[in-house]
Design a protein around this nucleic acid. Sequence first.
DNA 1: CGCGCTATTGGCCAGACGATCAATAGGCTA
DNA 2: TAGCCTATTGATCGTCTGGCCAATAGCGCG
Lengths: 211, 211
Amino acid sequence: MSDMVSSLEARRVRKQPDERRAEILAAAADIALAEGLECITLRAVAERIGVRPGLITHYYPSAEDLVIAAFVRAAESERDGANPVEGAPLARVAAFVRDMEAPSSDPISKLWLNARHLSRFIPALAEAVHEQEKLNVASLLAMIEGGVADGTFRCEDPLAACVRILVAIDGHGAYVNDIGGFIHEAYGCFVSDTAEWALGLAPGALAAARD
Amino acid sequence: MSDMVSSLEARRVRKQPDERRAEILAAAADIALAEGLECITLRAVAERIGVRPGLITHYYPSAEDLVIAAFVRAAESERDGANPVEGAPLARVAAFVRDMEAPSSDPISKLWLNARHLSRFIPALAEAVHEQEKLNVASLLAMIEGGVADGTFRCEDPLAACVRILVAIDGHGAYVNDIGGFIHEAYGCFVSDTAEWALGLAPGALAAARD
DNA sequence: CGCGCTATTGGCCAGACGATCAATAGGCTA
DNA sequence: TAGCCTATTGATCGTCTGGCCAATAGCGCG
């Protein structure tokens, strides 16, 4: 037990560039979700994976690029992770809306709020946000069009309904950092209510679809 | 012309503490609206009013307190500035909604987005945001209740309608830093549409109320 | 008119940030 | 097993931040 994984680990580990790059990006994405994009510093990322700050600069010469890449990765993994492609349109939208309103979505809500604000100062991040937005639109729009085709949803303009639901999600997410609960229960189910309104469903139809 | 207002102004001006405090707060609020809360630094505020950074610390020993005070002041001045107490409820809500959707509200939208995100790291700011929220609710709720009383609006729960409209405003404002226009016109009039839905108005009723 | 109170200054500190570069050492290959 | 390529380090720089404190000078009062 002379050289176990001691607390003062100083052993230098050499990895393949691709692997190291992926490791750095994963660490940065973790920080983005858990602590915020502003906390993605050379030193914070380096410490998390047990290397020296200079190495982060070596793989990401511009720290700003790492921040943007971390946001993209976090947003992508979130979209891929919780979007079941199976099931009826009503059930899929109901599940999507439920997830968005659930506390489990707080980290991703915080990330989007974070990225939307930071886009003010980082134009390249604004572009990445816009790109991820379009992907979210495509994902939700597909669900809606499926429901319109089989008569479940009743709306003239599926894209308009999609936009309304996504904006509602951002409105809901804007309060993710608030203290205490909100003033009224209408906040907690704002996304559901808006979705029902936008999709021409009866009030409570989405809540009922969650068996 | 030996000593005009030269570019290298070094003359020391002595003011009353109250006056100086107000001057500092006003400068900080200006920065908050124009550049963002993160740009309220001792040096930035000092330079704007032609004093040395140390003086800002003298009046605001905690720079964080100045940031919070600047947000409160900017939010208050905005609420006081554009809320006509006269007119019919329909006209007042229509004007309020129109203002929120207009590009002229971009600075205040950016400020709220900014404050909501920064609340994640500054608990005291989160409290201030919550306080300003309650004031906004009270202001809008009064308008709505007036319209419900005279039969203009048809909604069972005025507070629920108020909450829905305010959340819609935040959803709309979340895109204030986006590049290019949005994908669909449903975004541009999301607040109007949501307000009509929440208040039991016919689609287009608010737009029509803007003579 | 001159004195004293205090608003204001100048200087300085420690800490965190991104970035750069020569020196080092890990691990594959011959 | 010896050696080379390069991934990784350590050290250092310049800049920004908030915060502190003694010294200075503006302005009102006597």
